[in-house]
Computed example of a mutant assay.
Amino acid sequence: MSGDTIQLGDVTVTRVVEWSGPVSTVSAFVPDSSPDGRAALDPDFRNPADDAYHCAIQSWVLRSEGRTIVIDTGAGNDRERPQIPLFDHLKTPFLENLRLAGVEPEDVDLVVNTHVHYDHVGWNTRLENDEWTPTFPNARYLLPRVDRDYFDPENEHRRPPVHTDADRVRRQGSRLVFADSVAPILDRGLATLWEDSHTIDGNLTLAPAPGHTPGSSVLKLSSGTDRALFVGDLLHSPVQVAEPAANSCFCENPVEARATRYRLLGEAADTGALVVPAHFPGRGAAEVRKSGAGYELHNWAPFEPIRVN
């Protein structure tokens, strides 16, 4: 295997990076975290000089039972993102990086969006002749039905009320994400909306992991003696492994998010599953074991490390 690919049972897992760098601060991103917990992230996951949160936006390409599967599709290029100016009209070589991993967009059979946030659905589409068209034209897109319904602008009356200017900017951003990255997939009949659970093949299943968003999900890999949990934004930062009660500032239901985090970290510790979050730089994925009131990371995956300066 190359530095970007590992083997788990009969499944190969390849990391494809879209972007990496500092985003905001750890104390802003994970406001429930403790000062000691944040300091323990230095230097790989936090800059001690300014508390900058070290982040990677990446996709995971799985090859399983003859199919090519992409888990989460990053932020995407050319998008209007007022809610996060750092990624407004982004330009990255994501498709070139995908090709370097041996995958043309036409090769992809399935796309899994673990949830409907801007940095997980962006490359569902790309801009061609001023129109948002599917990036992976031969793929089925697996979307949690709960998130599709929750983020559909037609259902905004069901969401929490908007009180502040920041709330209004986030709500505008949510509409734009749905319009450029979700609606084109739905309109072309390429989406499979699932709920409760969804079996992809003999190695892979999707299960609900609610809290970060109502429809957040986890992809579970079980092949031979190997196990892995692709947990999306259940974990934004390693501080949430040591302190599972610490939510990110983007968790829609904090109580539910904490309960889900404890449950899945416990499952990973009990089964020895590799935990694969969406945004960890460094080697990107690790096993966990119980430590005090929380957990600790160990046995990092042998991916080539991402360095964030």
Rank of each mutant, 00 (worst) to 15 (best):
V146I: 08
H212K: 08
G294T: 08
E96T: 11
V16C: 02
V275D: 06
I185K: 00
P302W: 11
G211H: 07
V276M: 14
L274Y: 06
R263A: 15
P137F: 00
L204G: 01
P244G: 07
H236A: 13
I200V: 11
S216D: 12
V121Y: 04
T199C: 13
T192P: 00
D42G: 11
E243V: 03
V162N: 11
V61R: 00
P85S: 05
E104T: 14
R81M: 07
V103A: 03
D88H: 10
K91S: 05
R258P: 12
V288S: 07
L143A: 01
H212G: 02
N129G: 15
L219V: 15
G284Q: 09
D50M: 00
P210R: 09
G284T: 09
E104K: 13
T205L: 10
P160Q: 03
G74D: 12
Q240N: 04
S34C: 14
T164W: 05
H89W: 04
E18Y: 04
R283I: 01
G282E: 08
G292T: 01
L8S: 03
R159F: 05
N129W: 01
L229W: 13
P134E: 06
P153E: 11
V70G: 02
H54V: 08
V231E: 07
E252G: 14
T205R: 14
E156C: 05
R188M: 01
F136C: 00
N203E: 11
P160F: 00
A209C: 15
V112I: 14
V182R: 08
G189Y: 02
G76M: 07
Q58P: 08
A209I: 03
V182W: 13
R175Y: 14
E80A: 07
E80L: 05
L297P: 06
H298L: 12
V16G: 05
A269N: 09
D109Q: 02
G66K: 06
P93Y: 08
G21N: 09
